[in-house]
Nucleic acid binder design. Structure first.
Ligand SMILES: [Zn+2]
Length: 414
DNA sequence: TTTGCCGGGTG
DNA sequence: CACCCGGCAAA
């Protein structure tokens, strides 16, 4: 029936607002996407950023998936139509433009001012240059081999014993992760995200995809959330995580973002995490158990490991898994690094893909539940905060396209 | 109340 | 197709 969609909810925008998008659309020549000023105020250059982002985002394979390319990408000096008087229930948002919220040279601003050339540049390189671009990581598994001071990777045998002692301590799931977040992500996550220039995504270096907020290079001591939450979730949600490991050999895998390091001893792993990721001085005895969160154990020789690897292979037949949930896909990307790259060219390399082993492992288990739930129509609802929550209603232009369209978020998948 | 997003619209 | 939003259920 619709028809009523004149947009203009009691909201506000009298003038052009009226036909919500209609107006905008008309006034919006080149742009299609981030054209949304999100609020009556004139949106500075901000748009450009998201424009780029949106323009490039493209899930590998997902529901309703918007096709990769949207309209022609923005016109250079396109004056933003601005108005768009909150067609939405933009309630109490008299706030001022976000930009000013930050210090002059502040992160957010950085992007906004991105000079056109830059933008164009990016667009180009981000999109295709990837091909000729950096060989990137081995295009396979996240190779750690990047930093990790080769120096002090030794005394682990020694500490093993000590570490084992503290190993038993149950992880303080509340403490560790929470703390990690509060450190920086506390206030303005979006800012942080933007701070990192889009270019850095494809920063040749070694495998720098996915989230790389302030993780390593910037501040080793301030661990950006690797995936503690997830880890926790699966640790608990899992029906029978560790079944029989008595006979099987057990390995320990680092869950840190793109580390995935596998060690044979828990202590070794703990030390690894403490040193490399937590930035602490490896003193096993002082371990508060936080490390426990950043690694998981694998059943070598058993499905866990096997499967994990399997899904990493280009030919991974995720088909086997129940179609209930969007499994973690990466067959394509892996097969064709180029495409892969393109994916990341979007929105300041937020968090599109996490094709690391850890999550994989998790995934392998989760879907097991829904098998029977096939009848269940509705998905449980993601646990992660989505664009809306993260960026807020103001800054809507920072949301991923999906979110803007009220679709399932693509950037922060569950 | 807010958030996430399905389903269904529009051009 | 891109884009938007009503409206519901979960949080
Ligand atoms: Zn989103």
């Amino acid at each position: 029936m619709g028809a009523r969609r004149g947009g203009a909810r009691g909201g506000a925008g009298p003038a052009g607002s009226h036909a919500g998008r209609a107006a905008r659309a008309a006034a919006d020549p080149g742009r299609g996407v981030a054209a949304r000023p999100a609020r009556p105020g004139p949106a500075r250059g901000r748009v450009r950023a998201s424009a780029l982002a949106a323009a490039a985002w493209r899930p590998a394979s997902r529901p309703w998936r918007p096709s990769a390319r949207r309209r022609p990408v923005q016109a250079a000096g396109a004056p933003r139509p601005a108005p768009q008087a909150g067609t939405r229930g933009r309630p109490p948002v008299p706030v001022s433009a976000p930009p000013q919220g930050l210090p002059g040279g502040g992160g957010f601003a950085g992007l906004e001012f991105a000079p056109e050339p830059r933008a164009a540049d990016l667009g180009a390189s981000g999109t295709w240059a990837g091909a000729a671009g950096p060989p990137t990581p081995s295009a396979h598994i996240p190779v750690p081999a990047q930093r990790t001071p080769p120096g002090k990777a030794r005394l682990d045998e020694v500490m093993a014993a000590a570490a084992l002692t503290s190993l038993s301590t149950s992880p303080l799931l509340l403490g560790a992760p929470a703390a990690a977040f509060s450190t920086e992500a506390g206030v303005e996550p979006w800012k942080e995200a933007l701070v990192r220039p889009p270019g850095s995504c494809s920063s040749s270096s070694s495998g720098d995809w996915g989230w790389d907020l302030a993780s390593d290079q910037s501040s080793p001591s301030t661990p950006s959330p690797p995936l503690p939450l997830e880890a926790a979730h699966f640790l608990f949600g899992e029906p029978a995580p560790r079944k029989r490991k008595s006979s099987a050999q057990v390995l320990f895998q680092c869950l840190w973002k793109r580390c995935g390091k596998v060690l044979s001893t828990a202590s070794g792993m703990q030390r690894h995490i403490r040193l490399v990721h937590l930035g602490r001085q490896a003193e096993a005895e002082q371990s508060d158990g936080e490390e426990d969160f950043y690694y998981t154990e694998l059943d070598a020789g058993v499905d866990t490991l096997t499967r994990g690897l399997a899904s990493l292979s280009p030919a991974s037949p995720i088909a086997s898994a129940p179609p209930a949930f969007p499994t973690l896909e990466l067959p394509e990307p892996l097969a064709r690094p180029h495409v892969w790259h393109r994916d990341h060219a979007y929105q300041g390399c937020l968090a599109p893909v996490r094709l690391e082993p850890p999550p994989t492992t998790v995934r392998a288990c989760v879907p097991a539940l829904p098998t029977k739930l096939g009848a269940n129509p509705r998905k449980p609802r993601g646990d992660a905060k989505k664009c809306r929550k993260v960026y807020g209603m103001d800054h809507r232009d920072l949301w991923c396209t999906a979110c803007r369209w009220k679709k399932a978020c693509q950037r922060f998948l569950d």
